[in-house]
């Protein structure tokens, strides 16, 4: 594949940023299992809101770090398509209680265009969906991180592009992520329920880890699995059935966008200057204004 696994290269600061945000996200979801009873009692009510604000900020910082100066018009347009496809599917599935076929598009985008694009298009697909349905709320940062992570992971899957294994690996990935997504998203408000949770399924501040885990497991089985399992299965089936065709469409789209195709200016034959080759990702110092990609390495 000549197309850019490097459409948005993940440089080390961006990778660190994604890593740290991932850790904060993990803490935001799993803190009830680790903290002492006092902390949990004091903050059980505020923590979800605190984390919503914090993750909202961090997700945005992370997006800025990943994309800083690396988006040209073509990348933006391709991201726009991925976001629109994800958001549009969200719009379609608004009535079907969380049966989100959106992940399927994010997985394919991440797979074809690399982890950087996977992360950004996941986050943007969720945002677009929320803006389209008017569903902006504190859940948005959590979903952005989750969907971004799913796209990133799809880009990092160690399978060769175009191989037979790819299809099955992606289907399995879709199934697992569908389930894990629900598992995490419920954790966001589970401690918030406190004593409001069903008997034996609630968060008990300060209780041993395995107790709370068991409670949460039961809670998940009782309330959420019924939605998450069909979602995972739907996404996996979609990947199996439409995945190969869609992968080809995305690859073709990336090829036609000519990411990474060299741009060469040569003097007309008969003159003596050497050809002037430009890096594919632009460009030279323009005379008008300093540009944000002006210092790109040659």
């Amino acid at each position: 594949m000549m197309t850019g696994r490097r459409v948005i290269p993940l440089r080390w600061p961006a990778a660190v940023a994604v890593g740290v945000v991932g850790i904060v996200g993990l803490v935001a979801f799993t803190w009830p299992f680790f903290v002492t009873a006092d902390v949990a009692r004091d903050h059980g009510n505020d923590a979800p809101w605190l984390f919503a604000v914090l993750l909202g900020l961090l997700a945005v910082v992370c997006l800025a770090e990943v994309t800083a100066g690396r988006l040209d018009a073509k990348t933006i347009a391709v991201l726009g398509v991925a976001a629109a496809a994800g958001g549009g599917l969200r719009l379609l599935s608004a009535g079907t209680a969380g049966l989100e076929p959106m992940f399927f598009v994010v997985i394919v985008a991440g797979r074809v265009l690399g982890p950087g694009v996977g992360f950004v298009s996941g986050a943007l697909a969720v945002t677009t969906g929320a803006l389209l349905t008017g569903g902006v709320g504190p859940w948005l940062p959590f979903q952005m991180i989750c969907a971004g992570g799913i796209g990133l992971g799809a880009g990092l899957l160690p399978v060769r592009a175009g191989s037979r294994v790819e299809r099955w690996a992606l289907a399995a990935y879709a199934l697992v992520t569908g389930l894990v997504f629900g598992l995490f998203m419920n954790l966001w408000f589970w401690p918030f329920l406190g004593t409001g949770a069903p008997t034996g399924m609630g968060f008990v501040p300060g209780a041993p880890l395995q107790d709370n885990l068991a409670h949460y497991g039961l809670f998940y089985l009782a309330t959420s699995l019924g939605w998450d399992l069909p979602r995972g299965v739907l996404n996996a089936v979609l990947v199996l059935v439409a995945g190969p065709a869609l992968l080809r469409v995305f690859r073709r789209g990336a090829r036609r966008a000519a990411f990474g195709v060299p741009v060469v200016f040569a003097p007309a034959p008969g003159r003596d200057a050497a050809p002037h080759r430009e890096p594919a990702e632009p460009h030279d110092e323009p005379p008008v204004v300093p540009l944000h990609d002006a210092e790109h390495p040659r």
Binding site: V60, L79, A83, A84, L91, L132
Partner: peptide
């Protein structure tokens, strides 16, 4: 975030067309 914002605007314009 200007670039990212533009991508979202593009997504918002494309989604109904999609």
């Amino acid at each position: 975030l200007y670039d990212v914002g533009t991508a979202v605007v593009v997504g918002l314009t494309f989604a109904p067309q999609l």
